[in-house]
Design a protein around this nucleic acid. Structure first.
Length: 446
RNA sequence: GGCCGGAUGGCAGAGUGGCUUAUGCUCGGGCCUGCAAAGCCCGCUACCCCGGUUCGAUUCCGGGUCCGGCCUCCA
């Protein structure tokens, strides 16, 4: 099956041609672990999880790496604020991250390397860059010299002279050129740091991804993924480091970037303060509902987050759950569904196909229900048994509910509809809705 | 200022040079039901504006308006 994807590097949709058919290699930028992730952070997790699930269907092997940034100035600041050790903060946050990802039905990547465990690899790379003349020492820092990289700015479509014109941040005086960026920076005694040939210090932001992707995927790999806001400077700088250190023409063949989650049409972000953490959203909605909502828009378009949108997602998901009751996942995936995903991972179109299958099932085509269930797995949806989905939020005793339903059934068969309706109202007060059908009365909790 | 992306029906959101319909949610009508719910059927003047190309443009090209994003370790 042909897979087409939009490549940020060429700014075009391209046919995906792997470097090696026998092992598709993907790197995605993971979290900086200083605080709980918000819904905006959840989007790349979910999108690239779907990407991997999809690619695993059409290729024999996929190697997926998603790093953890556990050394960063934001971490140092946060730990100080919390009066907590850095190690405690990062360990605690990694655990919370892992719980959030699980709740969103995001599968674990094949490798989840941590920056602090790859300092030596980074130092080795920095050394090569110094030797090759792509980096220089200045005032205790090691800096990458942007002018030594001919294609610098290609990914982001930026041009050095314009960037300098537009620079609005004061340039540090240890930089030869404003666009140069830090590979290694000094730490004070007692601060977080490692001993190196360049003094006691810590790595810059970008070098970890270059070093770790090389370690787990090689000097060149298929897809590098991340949020739109990482294109510049992060990914641009990764390319510069990797291509110069490894003497390669490209780092990743395809660059995929997901759009933002917005709130009232403005980017959800930590600094704006307009964010909702995943753990807070999970208090009101199942992770699968959040997942459905995020997948209901194309990954490159913005999605406006709201609890109204989550409610809609829940209603739509309910419909899919009803139509896929009694089916288990199997390996037969709907062809039309797959062809939606093969077109730049068009998840909204794939979801619309799931709804078409639900309609077909409702009109009597049993096989459509089976296809629906199995296909949904590629999107990480319909994870629960249908009965579980509708009853998992029950607060009252199930025994009590079943008793009331039995009582009502008796009243109905006695044609005592007044009593039957009273019992139904009573259940409704408990948040329990009921559906009578030929096969008996079903109940659910919203 | 430079660069990038977007504008589709009540809402969300795909897609397409012409075709019968995206899809979902909501709302209204009908069927079904003891009544509901679920399900089925039907409906709610959809493609930002102005030019151009074309037999024909929501779709392609140019311009405009509006909205959003990026512009360096930095809060």
């Amino acid at each position: 099956m042909d897979f087409e994807l939009f490549n940020t590097y060429s700014n075009k949709t391209e046919l995906f041609i792997p470097l090696d058919d026998n092992d598709i290699r993907i790197y995605a930028c993971g979290p900086t672990v200083y605080d709980y992730i918000h819904v905006g952070n959840a989007r790349p997790l979910i999108i690239f999880d779907v990407l991997v699930r999809f690619l695993k269907l059409i290729y024999p092997k996929v190697t997926y790496v998603r790093n953890i940034t556990d050394v960063d100035d934001k971490i140092i600041v946060q730990a100080n604020q919390n009066k907590e050790s850095i190690n405690n903060l990062t360990e605690r946050t990694i655990k919370a991250f892992s719980n959030d990802a699980d709740a969103l039905f995001v599968k674990k990547p094949d490798f989840e390397p941590r920056a602090t465990e790859h300092i030596q690899e980074m130092l080795k790379m920095i050394k090569v860059l110094l030797e090759s003349g792509n980096a220089y020492l200045s005032d205790g820092h090691v800096l990458f010299s942007v002018s030594s990289m001919p294609n610098y700015g290609k990914l982001s479509g930026m041009n050095l002279s314009e960037m300098i014109d537009g620079a609005r941040v004061e340039v540090s005086d240890y930089k030869k050129e404003p666009a140069d960026f830090v590979l290694w920076k000094p730490s004070k005694t007692g601060e977080l740091g490692w001993h190196s040939d360049f003094g006691f210090g810590r790595p810059g932001w970008h070098i970890e991804c270059s070093a770790m992707s090389e370690k787990y995927l090689g000097k060149q790999f298929d897809i590098h993924a991340g949020g739109l806001d990482l294109i510049f400077p992060h990914h641009e700088n990764e390319i510069a480091q990797s291509c110069c250190a490894f003497n390669t023409k490209f780092m990743a063949k395809y660059w995929m970037h997901n759009g933002y989650i917005t709130v009232n049409n403005e980017k959800m972000s930590k600094s704006e303060g307009n964010f909702i953490t995943v753990r807070d959203a999970l208090k009101k909605h199942d992770g699968e509902t959040i997942r459905y909502s995020i997948l209901s828009g194309h990954y490159r378009s913005p999605i406006d987050f709201s609890f109204k949108a989550l409610k809609e997602a829940k209603s739509a998901l309910d419909r899919l759950y009803r139509a896929s009751e009694n089916f288990e996942y199997d390996n037969v995936i709907d062809e039309k569904f797959l062809s939606c995903l093969s077109s730049d991972l068009n998840s909204p179109q794939a979801i619309s196909r799931l709804h078409e299958l639900a309609s077909e099932y409702n009109k009597g085509n049993k096989n459509a229900g089976q296809l629906l269930k199995s296909s949904a797995k590629i999107l990480g949806l319909l994870n629960y048994d249908t009965s579980k989905w509708f009853t998992k939020n029950v607060r009252d005793d199930e025994y009590e509910i079943n008793n009331l339903i039995a009582e009502r059934d008796k009243a109905r068969s006695d044609k005592n509809f007044k009593l039957a309706d009273e019992i139904r109202d009573k259940l409704k007060e408990k948040g329990v809705s009921i559906e009578d059908s030929n096969s008996g009365t079903k109940w659910r909790v919203d």
